[in-house]
């Protein structure tokens, strides 16, 4: 591990200001510390934000929730208001990592965790995300965990979060504070960037900008399902995951929100699929067409080719479960 300076920030404005000078935020550290030990990330300066006042989950006037960035994954998954109104979120949270990790990992940190690409974690291997211009070893190498959508010739890494997939389906926003203390709000989808030619730039955050809260809109009607397919029953990253909020009224789909994990560099959402489903009666053929929309641009890299049929089948299974025997 490379030596680094350490500052414990007292409030969000101070944290953002210090980070604006080049420091890296640390909260739970469940990913950052591993990366620092491997010298994949080598921050000169850490600003510890764990003492900031961002631990609350509060109601919003719009009937939603405002979740402090430091709320741990365990606390968020156990929160009664969350479990009642947004059960998708605890399901996704509890499918990720382990109890010990969830006790340390935070809401903001979960969103900003780095990819699990094997080659990203090995400084002796080329990786455009770790070392721009060095190449991508995952292409032509082992890429079971890698993207079939949204990737580029420079990078095929996936975003590993489950929580972010649920939040994307739920239409969450993130509240940000900049180094000058100003604030703004971004839809979660706009927080992330696709790799393109610059896979090292993963978000649209400005230098120093701090995620202070995640904001959930008011609950929506419908069955909420998080289906995660992975290589063992627990403690494995998603090969494919599907987050769904689906409602059926009078035999047709009246509500459809879908997001996907494990297949793209960011939690993946295509509103075209949702628009397509609305107003139609559930059927296997409909699911096939929805999957066609999702996967028309999908491209495998060898060891992840199976994700294309797997995503198709998992989407259909989730839609079946979400609409099964439900004709209210």
């Amino acid at each position: 591990m490379r030596p680094f300076d350490y500052t414990r920030a007292q409030d969000s404005a101070e944290a953002a200001r210090i980070a604006g000078q080049g420091a890296t935020f640390i909260a739970g550290g469940t990913n950052l510390l591993d990366l620092m030990k491997l010298e994949v990330m080598t921050p000169d300066h850490l600003v510890d934000i764990t003492h900031l006042d961002l631990n609350e989950i509060t109601q919003t006037e719009a009937g939603g929730l405002r979740i402090g960035a430091l709320v741990t994954n365990s606390d968020l998954a156990a929160d009664m208001a969350v479990r009642r109104g947004w059960p998708l979120l605890p399901k996704a949270l509890l499918s990720g990592a382990t109890g010990q990790l969830r006790n340390k990992a935070t809401t903001g940190g979960n969103l900003l965790q780095r990819t699990r690409c094997y080659y990203f974690y090995d400084p002796d291997m080329p990786c455009n995300k770790r070392e721009p211009g060095s190449g991508c070893a995952a292409m032509g190498g082992m890429n079971r965990l890698h993207a079939i959508l949204g990737a580029s010739d420079a990078c095929i890494a996936t975003h590993p979060s489950d929580m972010a997939v649920a939040l994307r389906a739920l239409g969450a926003h993130v509240d940000l504070m900049a180094e000058d203390g100003s604030t703004r709000t971004l839809p979660l989808g706009d927080l992330y960037r696709l790799p393109g030619d610059t896979p090292e730039v993963e978000t649209n955050l400005k230098p120093g900008e701090l995620i202070t809260h995640v904001v959930l809109p008011a609950p929506v009607h419908g069955r909420q399902i998080y289906r995660k397919v992975r290589d063992r029953a627990s403690y494995a990253f998603a090969l494919v995951s599907v987050a769904a909020v689906i409602d059926v009224e009078s035999g047709v789909i009246s509500q459809a929100k879908l997001a996907f994990g494990g297949i793209a560099p960011m939690p993946w959402r295509m509103t075209e699929i949702e628009d397509f489903l609305i107003g139609k009666a559930p059927s296997e053929d409909l699911w096939e067409e929805a999957a066609d929309l999702l996967l028309s641009d999908a491209r495998g890299q060898g060891s992840n080719d199976f994700k294309i049929p797997l995503a198709r089948r998992t989407l259909a299974a989730v839609l079946n479960e979400a609409t099964r025997g439900d004709d209210q």
Partner: peptide, 28 residues
């Protein structure tokens, strides 16, 4: 679950930690 993955080009072991070398966990 268990497989040490060798890179097809240089033979090195790609999955070098307990997150990616999949031993069965309790739930398995």
């Amino acid at each position: 679950t268990e497989e040490l993955m060798h890179d097809p080009r240089d033979g090195h072991i790609v999955n070098r930690d307990l997150a990616e070398y999949h031993l069965p966990v309790n739930l398995d």
